[in-house]
Structure formats: structure tokens, C-alpha cells
């Protein structure tokens, strides 16, 4: 499943594993926590792929591993067909320009001492793109793209609202003309009325610039709105990947189904207690045997407690790692 559609994926992982651990002590063996376990995922050019899951599912670590911010324990990350581990320096530089990140917190991720123009121009300075005059022009162009007023360049981040700060973060990410934007919970710190503005902006930029997005989110409604494909993550593993409509109308993994059922919807009437998925996500220090979801799964069998299910296609473009996928029995 590395090459869907028969072409090279823009950003792709094969059996990617990320582990955190501490070294062995005098009287204690080394401990290892697998934050991401054997994840194979491909992002095509121009595609919007969302990764959903509870906190602790490893989705943020996956994003950080794609950016090379955490060391990879096993498996590989490929950009444009090149393995990041064996890349030449110019290839690595090209990748760093082409894969940009937008963070969750628009308050913490912008340097409060720099004017907005300098913040947006920073990637241009780092990658030595253009000369000072062309950089200024590029900053003005970027601010127009994300809908910031022209006089914003000289002002400081604290003079802007949360939504506008997220626009600044977006403009900064767009500065080196990336092909991929990785966004970690880009909406969750924003007001409801601002979230829809951001979603529309992201969609418009994608159409105009041909961007691909990898969105990490727990907001399933927003994911449904913007994503082409969705991957569900649980305890470090991808348990289901599908195009968005199939996933939302016919979820095959009981975990995805439970997440969808847990979203309260306007007009659905008052909540009736008793239907919620029980328990918490287990500690990655002591993951359950077999399928990691089986202790919380309403459909678990004895098989689930012993054998880890492999990813398999249940229909075209819809893969699931479950012994008893929903809607197939």
C-alpha cells in the first residue's frame, strides 16, 4: 500500500516506529515506550489526509517523526520517493522547505518580540530565498493570501486575535512555497466562529496552491469537512484508513465507530447516558496483548486478546486492522 494510485506518494512512511525510552540504570533495565508502532501511511500530492484519535494515540508523535523532529526507531519516511535516512544534503534541504508545520497554539508558537513581517519572512531568511526587496514583496503577497491586512507586517503578535495569529502562522508556513503543510490541532484553540473562517481559508489555499495537508485533529466534524482521507490511530497504530465518506458513513473499526458515536450533534436531542465508550486509552508502557483496543471493544472475542490484527482492505481504498470489522459479518 505504499503506492496508491500507482504513483509515488509525496510523503510516505513504511513501518514507521518511534520509541521513547530511558537508558538502563544501575539496577533497572532500559524501558521503552513505542509511541508510534509500525505505521505505513502515504500522503499524495494535493491530498488532505487527517489523522484522528484520542490524546495518547501517538498522532502528534507521528507528525513530529515526519518532520524529522524525533528520531525514528525503525521503518522509514520517504519524501518524493527518497528515504530521509539516506537523503543527500540538498534533498534534505528541499524537503525541509517543502514540508511546513502549523501548530495548535497560535499564542505560544509566534515569537512575541518579532514584528509579524519578520515572523513571516523568517523561513525565507533561513533558506536564503530571494533578496530583501523580493522577500518584502513575498511577505505582502503571503499576507494577502491568508487575509491579513496590509499594515499587519509592522505590528506584533499580541496585537492580533487568536484567529489572526493562526493566519500569521499559516503565512509563515507558506513562505518557502511548501508542497505539504502538517497541521497539529490547528483549530482547537480558536473560537467557533473563527474555526469556520480558518477551514474555508485552508480549503481555498489548497485549491489555489495545490497544497497537500496532513491534519492531526480530534475534531471529527472539522475533519469530515476538510479531509479526503482519514486515518484513525489507537495506541500508536493506524487501525483504519479510508476515504472520508466511507469512514464516516460505514466505519469498519469499532474504535472509529465509537469515536463517531461520541460526537454530540445539534438537533439530535438530549443525550442518553450509557452509550459512551468505557475506560481510558491504555498506557503505552503496558499495552494490552493482541489488538490494543480489545479491553474497551464491544465486539471483542478471545482472538482479539491474543492476535494483533493486520491491516487489510475491506473494499477499495478502505483498510482496517480488526478481526471483526463492522458491516462485513
Amino acid at each position: 500500500m505504499h503506492t496508491v494510485y500507482g504513483m509515488t506518494a509525496l510523503l510516505e512512511t513504511t513501518n514507521l516506529t518511534v520509541s521513547f525510552g530511558d537508558r538502563a540504570g544501575w539496577f533497572r533495565p532500559a524501558r521503552e515506550v513505542l509511541a508510534v508502532r509500525s505505521v505505513s501511511l502515504a500522503l499524495q500530492a494535493g491530498e488532505v489526509l487527517a489523522v484522528v484519535g484520542e490524546s495518547g494515540s501517538g498522532k502528534t508523535t507521528l507528525a513530529r517523526a515526519l518532520l524529522g523532529l524525533v528520531p525514528i526507531a525503525a521503518g522509514e519516511v520517504r519524501y518524493d520517493g527518497c528515504d530521509t535516512a539516506t537523503m543527500t544534503a540538498p534533498q534534505a534541504l528541499a524537503m525541509r522547505r517543502s514540508v511546513q508545520m502549523v501548530f495548535q497554539d497560535p499564542f505560544g508558537s509566534l515569537d512575541p518580540r518579532l514584528p509579524v513581517g519578520a515572523i513571516i519572512a523568517e523561513p525565507l531568511d533561513i533558506h536564503r530565498i530571494g533578496n530583501p526587496a523580493s522577500r518584502r514583496a513575498r511577505v505582502a503577497e503571503l499576507m494577502g493570501l491568508v487575509g491579513l491586512p496590509a499594515d499587519a507586517a509592522g505590528r506584533y503578535p499580541h496585537q492580533f486575535s487568536g484567529g489572526q495569529r493562526q493566519r500569521i502562522a499559516f503565512a509563515r508556513a507558506l513562505a518557502p512555497s511548501p508542497r505539504v503543510i502538517i497541521a497539529d490541532e490547528p483549530l482547537s484553540a480558536l473560537d467557533v466562529s473563527i474555526q469556520s473562517q480558518m477551514l474555508n481559508m485552508a480549503a481555498e489555499l489548497r485549491a489555489r496552491l495545490g497544497l497537500a495537508y496532513l491534519i492531526i485533529s480530534h475534531d471529527l466534524a472539522a475533519v469530515h469537512h476538510i479531509a479526503d482521507r482519514v486515518a484513525t490511530m489507537y495506541l500508536g497504530r493506524i487501525v483504519e484508513v479510508s476515504d472520508v465518506d466511507a469512514l464516516f458513513t460505514r466505519p469498519a473499526h469499532p474504535y472509529t465507530a465509537a469515536l463517531l458515536a461520541a460526537v454530540p450533534r445539534i438537533g439530535a436531542g438530549k443525550w442518553v447516558p450509557g452509550a459512551a465508550l468505557g475506560g481510558d486509552i491504555p498506557s503505552p508502557l503496558a499495552p494490552p496483548t493482541g489488538c490494543a483496543f480489545h479491553p474497551r471493544c464491544p465486539a471483542a472475542s478471545s482472538l482479539c486478546a491474543t492476535a494483533t490484527p493486520d491491516m487489510r482492505a475491506i473494499r477499495a481504498g478502505h483498510d482496517v486492522a480488526c478481526h471483526h470489522p463492522l458491516g462485513t459479518a
Binding site: 487568536g162 467557533v192 469556520s196
Partner: peptide, 24 residues
């Protein structure tokens, strides 16, 4: 009305979301 309309909803996919312009 604006708050309700701007919410993306599962099962009601729109190409462009209605928005409330400006900020609170």
C-alpha cells in the same frame, strides 16, 4: 443562526462553510 450554520457537521458536507465575518 450564524453559530449553528458555521459548524461543520458530520453528514452535512458543504464545499464552503458559511462564516461569521470578523471576531468576537
Amino acid at each position: 443562526a450564524g453559530l449553528i450554520a458555521t459548524l461543520p457537521d458530520i453528514g452535512r458536507r458543504q464545499k464552503i462553510l458559511p462564516v461569521i465575518e470578523g471576531s468576537p
